[in-house]
């Protein structure tokens, strides 16, 4: 919306023109401060309790490095899958007038509300060796997904896809659809329009969706452990390693958590506020 308004109405009003607001009232400030503390304290706890002395040694252990590498590879692969499947899905939800669109959207959002463990069980019944599609995959191509690295990617894609679809759909909705009309009258095929007009216009939204999906995939636990298991070096991602370490070596768990925290903060730094809002 804001994109269009800005392009039509020049000059663009800037934020600096807005009058500075009054000081926020106490009934806002107090809960907000508690809320902020609630969000920051656990991260602080991790920092305080971290075994800083043995940290370099712990960080370079095979378990940590393997898990970190696997996590990054799988989360990135899952994000690529999400982009390939999610952008067209978002386009369908935002731009087409197919029937039952609200039902379709509800289905897309299911993994968002489903407990991830349930998602894992559901994936097993669909793509497991004896699942409704998995059986056929196994017989026809000899492909088995459960308890493999590919399975991790499948599980992560399953839980991360809705995040990408929601964000990209929002971006497509707020992007001016008439640019597509304009492109068509200029002789552009639908594919050319999609590539040269639609995608560039919603690129910030797609980037935001990708970062959210990547973060969600990185932290994925329930569906992964259910569908792909917990094999070090193959399916044991960082969250799984944290969980296992917590039962045997709490210090190692803190170190692993600290690494995940660092990676997430880096991702957040890349995700500017303008991306979250889906505008420039």
């Amino acid at each position: 919306m804001s994109r269009v308004a800005e392009d039509v109405a020049r000059p663009v009003p800037t934020r600096a023109d807005a009058e500075p607001g009054r000081r926020p009232p106490a009934f806002v400030m107090v809960p907000a401060a508690i809320g902020l503390a609630f969000l920051v304290l656990p991260a602080l706890g991790l920092m305080v309790r971290a075994p800083w002395r043995t940290l370099p040694h712990e960080l370079t252990s095979t378990v940590v490095l393997d898990a970190l590498r696997l996590s990054l590879v799988c989360a990135t692969s899952a994000t690529v899958c999400c982009l390939l499947l999610g952008v067209p899905l978002a386009w369908l939800l935002a731009r087409s007038d197919i029937r039952g669109r609200s039902v379709l959207r509800a289905f897309v959002l299911v993994p968002l509300v489903l407990p991830p463990v349930v998602g894992g069980v559901a994936l097993l019944t669909a793509l497991g060796r004896r699942g409704i599609v998995g059986k056929w995959l196994d017989q026809a191509f000899g492909v088995t997904l459960p308890f493999t690295t590919a399975g991790v990617v499948v599980a992560e894609t399953f839980v991360a896809l809705p995040f990408l679809v929601i964000v990209v759909e929002g971006a497509l909705r707020s992007a001016e659809r008439r640019y597509d009309d304009a492109a068509a009258t200029l002789g552009a095929s639908r594919w050319y329009t999609f590539r040269r007009v639609t995608l560039p216009l919603v690129a910030p939204g797609i980037a935001a969706g990708a970062v959210l999906a990547w973060s969600r995939a990185l932290g994925e636990f329930g569906a992964t452990i259910t569908f792909a298991g917990n094999f070090p070096g193959r399916t044991q991602t960082m969250p799984l390693a944290v969980y296992i370490a917590l039962q045997t070596d709490p210090d190692a768990a803190i170190v692993l958590s600290l690494v995940l925290l660092g990676v997430s903060v880096l991702a957040l730094a890349g995700l500017r506020e303008r991306w979250i809002s889906g505008t420039r």
């Binding site: 392009d7 039509v8 001016e176 008439r178 640019y179 009309d181 304009a182 492109a183 068509a184 009258t185 200029l186 002789g187 552009a188 095929s189 639908r190 007009v197 216009l201």
Partner: peptide, 15 residues
């Protein structure tokens, strides 16, 4: 896209 028609839109719709 297959018509030999050029359009100038009210708000131009420049990309």
């Amino acid at each position: 896209e297959r018509r030999a028609v050029g359009v100038v839109f009210q708000d131009y719709l420049l990309f």
